[in-house]
């Protein structure tokens, strides 16, 4: 498959997945660029026995998680900002998800702030199953896990999101 055709087919898939991780248009665009540059570099090494979309999903997930880690590291060093603003207000400022309708924005933002506190695996499992509407089998394939493991990951992720939401409401 030619790179241009590949881009046309998968650009929205990559962009939307990145959006679920970072909830910010600029960051999602940056991740999308990085994903396709990585695809361009390793297109020759792609093994045909794996599904192309699964392969791209894996690259997009890794790039998104790497981006979030790098952003966290940057924030840690930006101590002047952290003196005056806490992390949650900073996250709220950068929340810019175009896929959410205005009347639901506040509720979704609250869920995302709880989702952002999950560990990488739980976050990925929940994003793929709940937002990307993937079946447990597909999630298992993308995450290189068994469907049983994915099932328990999703249950734990939902419980933790709920706990985080309750903690927030309790404050």
């Amino acid at each position: 498959m030619q790179f241009d055709a590949l881009f046309t087919t998968y650009k929205n898939m990559v962009y939307n997945l990145a959006l679920q991780y970072v909830q910010n248009v600029e960051d999602a665009e940056e991740i999308t660029q990085d994903v396709f540059v990585a695809i361009h570099h390793s297109l020759n090494t792609f093994k045909q026995n794996a599904e192309m979309s699964t392969w791209i999903y894996r690259i997009a997930i890794n790039k998104s998680l790497d981006f979030l880690k790098a952003k966290k590291r940057k924030k840690r060093f930006g101590f002047i900002v952290s003196i005056f603003e806490n992390q949650e207000t900073m996250q709220a400022h950068s929340f810019n998800h175009p896929g959410i309708e205005l009347e639901q924005k506040q509720a979704v933002q609250l869920i995302f702030s709880a989702l952002n506190k999950l560990n990488d695996q739980q976050k990925t499992a929940l994003i793929l199953s709940k937002i990307e509407q993937k079946s447990q089998k597909e999630v298992a394939e993308i995450m290189n896990l068994t469907p049983k493991a994915v099932e328990s990951l999703i249950v734990r992720a939902k419980n933790n999101v709920f706990k985080n939401l309750n903690n927030k409401e309790g404050l």
């Binding site: 929205n12 962009y15 939307n16 665009e29 999308t32 869920i111 999101v161 709920f162």
Partner: peptide, 30 residues
């Protein structure tokens, strides 16, 4: 049930189109 209902709001997130200028920026990066 309450948990599921809360999370069901995530099903309403719509798919958005990526910027048409992305390909130019990607080619530049490459």
């Amino acid at each position: 049930n309450e948990m599921e209902q809360t999370l069901d709001i995530l099903n309403n997130i719509k798919e958005v189109d990526a910027s048409p200028f992305l390909i130019t920026r990607i080619q530049q990066k490459i």
